[in-house]
Nucleic acid binder design. Structure first.
Lengths: 139, 139
DNA sequence: GTGATTGCAAATCTTTTGCACTAAA
DNA sequence: TTTAGTGCAAAAGATTTGCAATCAC
C-alpha cells in the first residue's frame, strides 16, 4: 500500500518539463500518473476529470496531452483512424490492440525481439519503432 | 515495358471480391493497381480520379477503399491521427513513416525479424502485426 | 425489373484555433 | 505586473450517413 502522496512529486515533474503546475494540469497529471499505466483518449480523460469534479475544458485537456507528450511525460499511440490514445508508460514497449473493445494493452519491450531492423533511408534517423499486435476474438 | 492490359484482369479481381465492376470502382482500381505499390489517402485518390477526368464522388472513393480493404484488395495503414492511408501491397511487410513528409515506404517482410512474439491474450487471435519505423531528418 | 451502387449534401466526430479572461511567478 | 495558461465557441478536417437517382445484371 503506497501512502497518498502530496502533489509535490507531480508539481516537480511538471516544472521539470517546463510546464507551470496549474490547477488543471496538476489535476490531469494526477488522473494520468497516479493510477498505474494507462491508455486514454482525450475524451476519456476529460470524462474522468468531470467525474472527479475537476472543471477542465476539453481544449485544455488536448493542450495538456500534447504538452505532456512533447515533453516526454506521455507517449501518443495511434491505432485507430480518427482517435489518439495517450500512454502513461513512456518506456520502450509495444502494444496489443484489442480490435473488439478498442483497448490497448502493453507488451514489455523484452517480450518482442526485433532481431533485424532495416537501415533507415539515407539522411534519416529512426525516431521510434512502433509494434502493434492487433488481436480479436476469432472471426 | 508492359503492354496496356485490357481491364478484364481488374474486372475479374473485383468480381472475385464480390464487388460489381462498376465504372467508378474499375477506374479507382486502375489508379490503385496499375501503378505499382502505392500508399494513398482517400483525398489523394479522389484527386487523382479528378485529374484523370473520372467523375467520382469522395463518398464513393471512401466506399470503394473500405470495400477493397475488407475484401483484401487493400490494406489500411494507420500512422497519423485523423488520416488513413491505403496500401496496395497486401503481402506481409512493414513500413517506414517519414514524419517530415508524411510519406510511407514499404519494408519487405524479410527485412524485419520478429524473433520473439508474445502469446496473444487468452481467447484472442492475432489478426496482424504492424511495425512502423518512424524516421525523420534528425534535429 | 430489381437490388446494388452512386452522388450529393448534411451530419458526425475528433481535434484545432482565436481571443478575451484568469492565474502563476 | 507580466506572461503563460484557460475556457468557450467557432472552425477545421476527415469520414459517415440518408436517400433519391442510376446502373449492372
Amino acid at each position: 500500500m503506497v501512502a497518498q502522496r502530496p502533489y509535490s512529486d507531480l508539481i516537480d515533474r511538471l516544472k521539470a518539463a517546463g510546464l507551470r503546475p496549474t490547477r488543471q494540469r496538476l489535476a490531469l497529471a494526477r488522473l494520468l500518473f497516479e493510477n498505474g499505466d494507462r491508455h486514454l483518449t482525450a475524451e476519456q480523460l476529460h470524462g474522468e476529470a468531470m467525474a472527479a469534479r475537476v472543471p477542465v475544458s476539453l481544449a485544455t485537456v488536448y493542450n495538456a496531452l500534447h504538452q505532456f507528450t512533447s515533453t516526454g511525460l506521455l507517449r501518443e499511440v495511434i491505432v485507430e483512424p480518427g482517435r489518439s490514445y495517450f500512454d502513461t508508460n513512456v518506456t520502450d514497449h509495444y502494444h496489443f490492440f484489442h480490435e473488439d473493445s478498442g483497448q490497448l494493452e502493453d507488451i514489455a519491450g523484452e517480450d518482442v525481439r526485433l532481431s533485424a531492423l532495416p537501415l533507415p533511408p539515407k539522411g534519416k534517423r529512426i525516431r521510434r519503432v512502433d509494434v502493434i499486435i492487433r488481436v480479436n476474438c476469432g472471426d
